[in-house]
């Protein structure tokens, strides 16, 4: 299911964060949103996820206006992984995963909800942690648990805010491969990523943000010129696959 963003604008009180942002995230593809801190990346995801209300612009999933959807319709459409999360209550991991079913549960979850939560934990190798208190996990493990929560929710579009920034290399690879596989099975993934190299490795489609606006690469997106425009630093380009791996230039230049 594709997601169509048209002329989305947003301001926190007086501070304008997004101005007329438009892009399309194609069905079954991995769309990556890139840009510097404060460029509005997380805000876009929060608007798409319905965590923040928006007043200007339109977001359509397969032709349906997101703002018109009920809670459960939205939940079967969209899953959202927030940037950073902790809780004071030491809920068991399996209970946190089960909350992914919230929109489909009247009072308490039934056998089907428990089965879906179980499958999601299996998928992410979380079964050994099922009884562990969520609040005692590392940031990376918590991220995986919240990912399992999304899988239990079974949405057709998944929104992720910096999903790998707290993860070690092994967890990073596992999560990114899972997302890649989900896109191959038809799920649409939209993720904010800090690392342009991870974007190059796993992404299909890229949206670059600068100061709340979408900027288009004139030529090659991973070229040092465009990377400098996006991130404001000089980079070195190492040819890799269909693009370049990007290395920030060390102090005093670099002699390769």
């Amino acid at each position: 299911m594709s997601l169509d963003v048209q002329n989305l604008s947003f301001a926190y009180e007086q501070r304008v964060v997004l101005q007329n942002v438009s892009f399309t995230a194609p069905t079954g593809q991995f769309t990556v949103i890139l840009g510097r801190n404060g460029s509005g990346k997380s805000t876009i995801l929060k608007l798409l996820a319905g965590v923040l209300p928006f007043h200007s612009g339109r977001v359509q999933a397969h032709g349906q206006d997101l703002r018109r959807l009920s809670g459960s319709a939205r939940a079967s459409l969209l899953g959202y992984l927030p940037q950073f999360h902790r809780t004071v209550f030491p809920f068991a991991v399996q209970d946190v995963v089960l909350t992914g079913r919230a929109a489909f549960v009247l009072s308490t979850p039934g056998p089907r909800d428990r089965k879906l939560a179980q499958e999601a934990m299996e998928e992410l190798d979380l079964l050994p942690l099922a009884e562990r208190p969520y609040s005692e996990l590392s940031g990376g493990e918590r991220q995986i648990v919240l990912m399992a929560r999304i899988l239990a929710q079974r949405p057709r579009i998944i929104l992720l805010d910096e999903p790998v920034s707290h993860l070690d290399l092994a967890h990073q690879q596992r999560l990114m491969r899972l997302l890649k596989r989900l896109t191959q099975e038809g799920t649409t993934v939209i993720s904010v990523l800090h690392d342009p190299n991870a974007a190059l490795l796993y992404g299909d489609h890229f949206v670059f943000l600068k100061e709340g606006r979408v900027i288009e690469p004139g030529g090659h997106p991973w070229s040092p010129t465009f990377m400098e425009e996006v991130y404001g630093v000089r980079t070195l380009a190492v040819p890799f696959g269909g693009g370049n791996l990007v290395i920030p230039e060390p102090a005093g230049g670099c002699h390769v």
């Binding site: 809670g71 809780t87 209550f89 909350t99 549960v105 009072s107 929560r149």
Partner: peptide, 23 residues
């Protein structure tokens, strides 16, 4: 008693509650 499981959802945070489709 009816709301007892929803309290689990709510205890995880506002954003997390919205993310799974509840207000």
């Amino acid at each position: 008693y009816f709301m007892r499981w929803r309290m689990n959802v709510l205890a995880l945070g506002d954003e997390e509650t919205r993310a799974v489709g509840l207000n």
